[in-house]
Design a protein around this nucleic acid. Sequence first.
DNA 1: GCAAGGCATCGACGAATGTCAATGGATCGG
DNA 2: CCGATCCATTGACATTCGTCGATGCCTTGC
Lengths: 117, 117
Amino acid sequence: MAKRVPALEAPERVRGCCVQLAPPLPDETAADVAEIFRALADPTRIQMVHMLEAAREPVCVCDFTAAFDLGQPTVSHHLAKLKAAGLVDSFKRGVWAFYRLRDDLPVAARRAIAAIP
Amino acid sequence: MAKRVPALEAPERVRGCCVQLAPPLPDETAADVAEIFRALADPTRIQMVHMLEAAREPVCVCDFTAAFDLGQPTVSHHLAKLKAAGLVDSFKRGVWAFYRLRDDLPVAARRAIAAIP
DNA sequence: GCAAGGCATCGACGAATGTCAATGGATCGG
DNA sequence: CCGATCCATTGACATTCGTCGATGCCTTGC
């Protein structure tokens, strides 16, 4: 990959093309951040996180099923995905299940969520 | 917030848990944000954006192909995806193609990128 | 003009994703 | 105990995604 560079001429194009790049992120870090983004890479889940952020308290699943034009299993699936990514938390009270944003979100997750208008 | 609903049997169901939710984001907004997140929902593209951010100048495609253990078409594919999402910009100089972060990124994109360590 | 190299595009294939219908497990009110 | 309600899980299906190999288009150097 090392390219020959005629040091004589090529005033502006000096850098043949390749340049010394910054050390990449650790693979695990990149994977973790990508997972956060993947969890947010869907309009429905964007809305869910937005609603959880706006309501400062836990939100019942029935609220989500009422808010979206989707079947209940689909809503459950999206919530499970947010939970698997570590973005939300859930508990049951009686018949109902409530979800809330985790309060111990990693910085990357907090910043990603902050990108939602 | 629980609505006290006496025995006036509404044809609608009586909810004992649901709260008044914030108005959802406009569908188009949610879709736009989701597209940004989808563009960043891959470890390779996270690394690419990270490198573009670190190198304050345009980066040659050959640098990316050298940095990743991926075939050249795959690298090209990822760059095209970042470009389609409006995150990066590209131009050709001689034989080489250079990519750079767009300088007119929407706020959501800028914030999403800021979530990358 | 020709050969070489850098990149994008195409075609293909397995894996993952979003959605639904059907089912099952809890929990509550009679 | 019974039936009703809420929710998660399962199975199925079409779509999208990440990756590769092959090919084609430009630009440069001879």
